[in-house]
């Protein structure tokens, strides 16, 4: 009897989800803003991957014959105070940004999702411990936490990634916990438990796949946050170290030449805006398609 009631219930949610998938993709592409975000993000990812192939200049090699040259045919975005090609540095800077954006979010998810699942599913002591730890981390404003971690770990791209990833963990824990609390009382989860499904099956085969839409939306929000975080930490001297190119490092050195060579500040900044805007647009589009309960406020 229990099998007869459980089997359709177990199959309904994934089957219905699968049936909805093509519709969701079409709806995402049909939204001009989300499509714009998707295209810009794809271009930036392509630039990040192909950076060494698409620029003839070395982003770290000084050229003292072309110091602070304005944009021209040979240097499309001009050169910096050491004569380095700005376009090449922007391409490699995008590479660093994307690397941090993706890896920091992966790190936050690797730690945050299991913690959120455990807190939401087991409740009681586990929930209390995880919630207090999350509250403690949330008590530190993002930048204070990231600056503190970057200072403890030392300034580098990898450590900036770790600092930003760790700073994003509380948000991932909270969303995963909330989704787990909501899903654990649904019929198909109860049916799995009644059928003798272990905790692992319930958590990873029932709850996690159905929490995925909210988590995907959170990831698209986390990536621009991480891109901004990397630029900010590098700008403050706590991320990528010169002469390695990073959009934040470029803006930091542009500060001293803002009146003489405004292109040094304008182009890297525009690329950061494009990257964060792209993922914000994509995130808004995905939220509308995948997680309508999330609202748009």
């Amino acid at each position: 009897m229990s099998t007869a009631t459980a089997t359709p219930a177990q199959q309904t949610a994934p089957a219905a989800a699968a049936a909805r998938r093509p519709g969701r993709l079409r709806r995402l592409i049909a939204s001009p803003l989300a499509l714009t975000g998707l295209v810009i993000a794809a271009v930036l990812v392509a630039v990040a991957l192909a950076a060494p192939l698409i620029t003839p200049y070395d982003p770290t090699l000084p050229d003292f014959d072309h110091v602070l040259s304005p944009p021209s045919l040979s240097h499309w975005l001009g050169t910096d105070d050491l004569g380095r090609d700005q376009l090449a540095r922007v391409f490699y800077g995008v590479r660093a940004s994307m690397q941090v954006g993706v890896l920091a979010v992966v790190l936050a998810f690797l730690i945050g999702v299991p913690l959120g699942l455990v807190a939401g599913y087991y409740g009681r002591f586990a929930d209390t411990v995880v919630s207090r730890l999350t509250d403690t981390m949330l008590a530190f404003p993002f930048l204070v936490l990231a600056v503190g971690l970057a200072a403890v770990l030392g300034p580098s791209l990898l450590n900036a990634t770790i600092a930003i990833g760790v700073a994003q963990i509380p948000a991932v824990v909270r969303i995963t916990r909330a989704e787990t609390l909501r899903l654990r009382h649904l019929d198909y989860v109860a049916a799995t438990i009644a059928n003798g499904g272990g905790d692992g099956t319930v958590l990873f085969r029932r709850i996690l796949p159905n929490a995925a839409p909210a988590l995907i939306v959170q990831a698209t929000v986390g990536i621009p946050g991480a891109i901004l975080g990397e630029a900010l930490l590098s700008f403050l001297g706590l991320g990528v170290q010169p002469p390695s190119p990073s959009l934040g490092v470029m803006l930091s050195s542009a500060q001293s030449f803002i009146a003489q060579a405004p292109w040094m500040a304008v182009f890297p900044g525009l690329v950061i805006v494009a990257a964060t805007l792209a993922f914000n647009l994509l995130g808004d589009g995905l939220r509308d398609v995948l997680d309508p309960r999330g609202g748009t406020a």
Binding site: L251, G269, N280
Partner: peptide, 12 residues
């Protein structure tokens, strides 16, 4: 406003 980094906006 959500996408423009504050430090860049400051410089501009």
């Amino acid at each position: 406003g959500l996408s423009v980094p504050s430090f860049w906006l400051g410089m501009v």
